[in-house]
Amino acid sequence: MIKKHGGVTEEAKKEYQYWAKHATILTGGEAAYCQIDDQGRIFRAVSMAWPNSTKAPDRYFLPLIHPITNRECPVPSKGWRNPPETMAQLMNQGLIVFGKDETTQPTRKYFLDENEDENLTSIIPFGGSDTSLLEEMGIPFDNPKPIAFADTILRSITKTNDTVLDFFAGSGTTAHAVMKLNAEDGGNRRCISVQLPEPTPEGSAAREARFETIADISRERIRRAGKKILEDEAGKLDGRAEGLDVGFRAYRLVDTNFAKWKADSGLSEDELVGLFADLADSADDHARPEALLTEVLLKLGFSLTEKIETVEVAGLSVFSVADGLVLAYLDEHTQPTLDQLRALVCEEPARLVVLEDAFQGNDELKTNLVQECRTRNVDLWTA
């Protein structure tokens, strides 16, 4: 248009502004860049008002003088966003937009060529919450974030194989949105949801529904959301429901179940004396094998998302990690025979993990296992 009108004329500016506001190929954010300055740069005018709920310091109320009428322009009710020094720099750089006269509050130029990589507008207009949806799902939670809002963010900033981290999971909206989006576009996004076990208020609907903590709500929301997504997708013709992964693992941050690792946890001298007196047992007698496996894998440098299966080898129930890369026997109450341990070694995992307590003090059994592992070039790791 500039070329058409032979320069940055008023006619070129008006024609571009009309086109930008009516072009169907532009999004709302793109259409906002509907002005051209005297240098031919496309920009939008943004407010320079103080953004916080309280008023700005007194010096942020210095009025700007209109360049034509030489009169003071209106100052925002809470002051300017920037101090007088910055406002003076903006003025010298020609970055402030004035109206026809002093009755219009000045704004700032925001150039398109400096913001072409932005994925989201600064304001996403979502109001309300998903209270009715959660009520339908049987999840009591006050003012849950709308899935539509989370969906907008995810579609704008994630690729199909990204991992999304939500440090304040709340009712589990983000995880729900991730699973829903994967179902729609065939993506394989993963979501890590973190939530402190904050107690639900006494007498609240959540407590009456037997949700003791907010974390309990998060887990159950994710569980029910996955079930709902599978049901919704099952009715579609493309048959994608069978391949959808809506499963998840839940972990709690707790102290170690292994006595030898507690020695590194900053215990006092008296506590350490008592600890080493009990080192005959390597693991907590009440710890579930799954909890022991989680600690072992973290110690070995594996992620919490590894493929884990329970398999039976020679009558022993063992964990197979990463398609047999690691085999772990973590039953501290049942002592295996040498033939059973040989069978584990014959599977030729890269690493064999056996709970120290499983030997029940039988040093000969442990020594024989070490020799079997050396023969098959299997790395033995006792926990």
Score class of each variant (00 low, 15 high):
residue 4 K to A: 11
residue 7 G to E: 03
residue 9 T to Y: 03
residue 9 T to Q: 02
residue 12 A to W: 11
residue 14 K to P: 00
residue 21 K to D: 03
residue 23 A to Q: 03
residue 23 A to C: 06
residue 31 A to V: 07
residue 33 Y to A: 02
residue 34 C to N: 13
residue 37 D to C: 04
residue 40 G to F: 09
residue 46 V to M: 03
residue 46 V to C: 02
residue 47 S to D: 08
residue 49 A to P: 05
residue 50 W to A: 05
residue 54 T to V: 12
residue 56 A to R: 06
residue 59 R to I: 13
residue 60 Y to M: 08
residue 66 H to K: 08
residue 68 I to R: 12
residue 71 R to K: 15
residue 73 C to R: 05
residue 75 V to Q: 08
residue 77 S to A: 14
residue 81 R to L: 14
residue 82 N to E: 10
residue 84 P to I: 11
residue 85 E to T: 09
residue 91 M to S: 13
residue 92 N to L: 09
residue 95 L to M: 15
residue 101 D to T: 15
residue 103 T to F: 09
residue 107 T to A: 08
residue 107 T to Y: 04
residue 108 R to A: 14
residue 108 R to P: 01
residue 111 F to V: 13
residue 115 N to Q: 03
residue 116 E to N: 05
residue 117 D to Q: 13
residue 126 F to Q: 01
residue 129 S to T: 13
residue 131 T to F: 02
residue 132 S to H: 07
residue 132 S to F: 06
residue 134 L to Q: 06
residue 139 I to T: 06
residue 149 F to Y: 10
residue 152 T to G: 00
residue 152 T to F: 02
residue 152 T to E: 04
residue 155 R to A: 07
residue 162 D to Y: 04
residue 167 F to M: 11
residue 167 F to A: 03
residue 168 F to E: 02
residue 171 S to F: 04
residue 171 S to D: 01
residue 175 A to M: 06
residue 180 K to P: 00
residue 181 L to I: 10
residue 183 A to I: 04
residue 185 D to W: 08
residue 185 D to E: 10
residue 185 D to P: 01
residue 190 R to T: 15
residue 193 S to L: 14
residue 194 V to S: 01
residue 194 V to T: 03
residue 196 L to M: 12
residue 196 L to P: 01
residue 197 P to I: 15
residue 197 P to C: 10
residue 198 E to Y: 07
residue 199 P to A: 11
residue 202 E to C: 01
residue 202 E to S: 08
residue 202 E to R: 09
residue 204 S to V: 09
residue 204 S to I: 11
residue 205 A to Y: 04
residue 205 A to V: 14
residue 212 E to S: 12
residue 216 D to H: 13
residue 218 S to W: 02
residue 220 E to T: 15
residue 231 E to A: 09
residue 231 E to I: 06
residue 236 K to P: 00
residue 243 G to T: 14
residue 244 L to R: 05
residue 245 D to H: 04
residue 245 D to V: 07
residue 246 V to P: 00
residue 249 R to H: 04
residue 251 Y to M: 01
residue 253 L to C: 00
residue 253 L to R: 01
residue 258 F to E: 03
residue 262 K to E: 10
residue 263 A to L: 14
residue 264 D to A: 09
residue 266 G to P: 00
residue 268 S to C: 05
residue 268 S to T: 15
residue 270 D to P: 00
residue 276 F to S: 04
residue 278 D to E: 11
residue 281 D to T: 09
residue 285 D to Q: 08
residue 286 H to R: 05
residue 288 R to D: 15
residue 289 P to Y: 10
residue 290 E to T: 15
residue 290 E to W: 07
residue 292 L to K: 12
residue 293 L to H: 09
residue 296 V to I: 14
residue 299 K to Q: 12
residue 300 L to D: 05
residue 306 E to Y: 09
residue 311 V to P: 02
residue 313 V to M: 09
residue 314 A to W: 10
residue 316 L to S: 10
residue 332 E to C: 07
residue 333 H to R: 12
residue 334 T to A: 05
residue 339 D to K: 13
residue 340 Q to M: 09
residue 343 A to T: 13
residue 344 L to I: 13
residue 347 E to H: 13
residue 349 P to I: 10
residue 358 A to H: 11
residue 360 Q to K: 15
residue 363 D to K: 10
residue 365 L to K: 08
residue 368 N to M: 12
residue 370 V to K: 08
residue 372 E to G: 00
residue 373 C to N: 04
residue 376 R to Y: 13
residue 380 L to C: 03
residue 380 L to E: 02
residue 381 W to F: 15
residue 382 T to P: 00
